[in-house]
Amino acid sequence: MILFRNRVWVARTVLACALFLLATAAVGAQEIQGLPRPTALASQSLRPYWHVFAAYAIVITLIGGWAISIGRRLRDLEDRLR
C-alpha cells in the first residue's frame, strides 16, 4: 500500500515537474522571440565609437596642424627678416 502510494506520489511529482518544465520552456521560447538574434548581437560593437573618436581627432589634428604650420612659417620669415 505504501509502495503504491509512493508510486502515485512519484508519478504526480514527475508529472508536476514535467508540466513546470514545459510551461517554463513555452514561456521562455516566447520571450526569446523578442530578443535580438545572435547575429545581431554579434554585430553590435564599439566600431561606431571608434569612428566618432577618429572623426573628432581628425578635426583637432587638421586645425591644429594648420595653426602650427602658419606659426612655423611666420617664425621662419621673421628670422629671415632680422
Partner: peptide
C-alpha cells in the same frame, strides 16, 4: 583654409558613411 576644412569633410564623411 577651405582646403583644410574640405579635407575634414572628405575624411569624416567616409567614417560616418562606413557605419
Amino acid at each position: 583654409g577651405g582646403l583644410v576644412f574640405g579635407t575634414i569633410v572628405l575624411t569624416t564623411g567616409p567614417l560616418w558613411g562606413k557605419i
